[in-house]
Design a protein around this nucleic acid. Structure first.
Ligand code: SF4
Ligand code: SF4
Lengths: 132, 132
DNA sequence: ATTAAATACGACTTTATTAGTCGTATTTAA
DNA sequence: TTAAATACGACTAATAAAGTCGTATTTAAT
């Protein structure tokens, strides 16, 4: 429980790798996958998702790959995670009201507070903090 | 991703319920299960686990149930979660060194920092904060 | 034009985790 | 003796995460 998904980790690894090479350089999936022992197909899908979200820019054809476009200073960890994985919350009722216990739940408020603290923590944190 | 398990939630709900009734009162599983729409058998197992851990005290036989014994001021959320679910960490390498990427991982340190912040946050928080 | 190296993308399968159920034994108040 | 409760492990079901496959498209180089 309570783990970042591999997808998020792989995405961060890739972004950090690309950032260290500068934003003009084109890096291809295979290079990253081999450098970090990540299943290529899975990384490929993940990078495609990052490209759809406008964080990296695809370059097709031979010598293609991706170029880092987003300013990682401006992207916080909450947004990044939700971009890749959808809504993030400690408890179902944060993003889905179908919890059976909702009407009678006696711990919701304290849990909401903890959840807010974590989201806040993640909001303060730019991707640049993680990749520099 | 990133959710508290139902087991943890049910345990907190039960503890809060018991706390509100005072620590001398014996409360049985069925009462709690019905009040909060929790599957009885599942709650039963969870309360048995809390009893084994010494947080509540079992009273067997008819009119039996559990009595709250631990001082919830003294129990923090990290310990509580780990008591029920085992080691808690944002990433595998926090409690298991078999991650394939470990040797080459370029994001481990920043992730460790975030993980520490969260554990720290949870350490500051006593169960009493959540149940009062 | 052809080839080959790359991205694009959805469907699928596998594995892991979480959630919930069942059966049976034990304890004990009435 | 009965019935209401806990004790506990094995099992099953549901959900989520991780990984794979097949096929199409783009484009630089020859
Ligand atoms: S309502 Fe209570 S039990 Fe349901 S998800 Fe929210 S906190 Fe958890
Ligand atoms: S942070 Fe790096 S080393 Fe740790 S689990 Fe994630 S990928 Fe593995």
């Amino acid at each position: 429980m309570f783990k970042l998904t591999r997808k998020v980790e792989y995405a961060l690894i890739a972004l950090r790798h690309m950032q260290s090479k500068g934003s003009e350089v084109v890096t291809n999936t295979k290079e990253i996958a081999e450098a970090y022992d990540i299943p290529v197909q899975l990384l490929a899908k993940t990078l495609q998702q990052l490209a759809r979200e406008g964080i990296i820019d695809p370059v097709q054809g031979p010598h293609g790959g991706y170029r880092l476009t987003a300013n990682l200073e401006d992207l916080n960890l909450t947004d990044f995670i939700e971009l890749l994985e959808g809504p993030m919350g400690l408890m179902d009722c944060y993003f889905d009201s179908r919890c059976e216990q909702l009407r009678v739940c006696n711990i919701r408020l304290p849990i909401v507070k903890i959840n807010d603290s974590i989201r806040n923590l993640f909001n303060q944190m730019s991707l640049a903090d993680l990749t520099k």
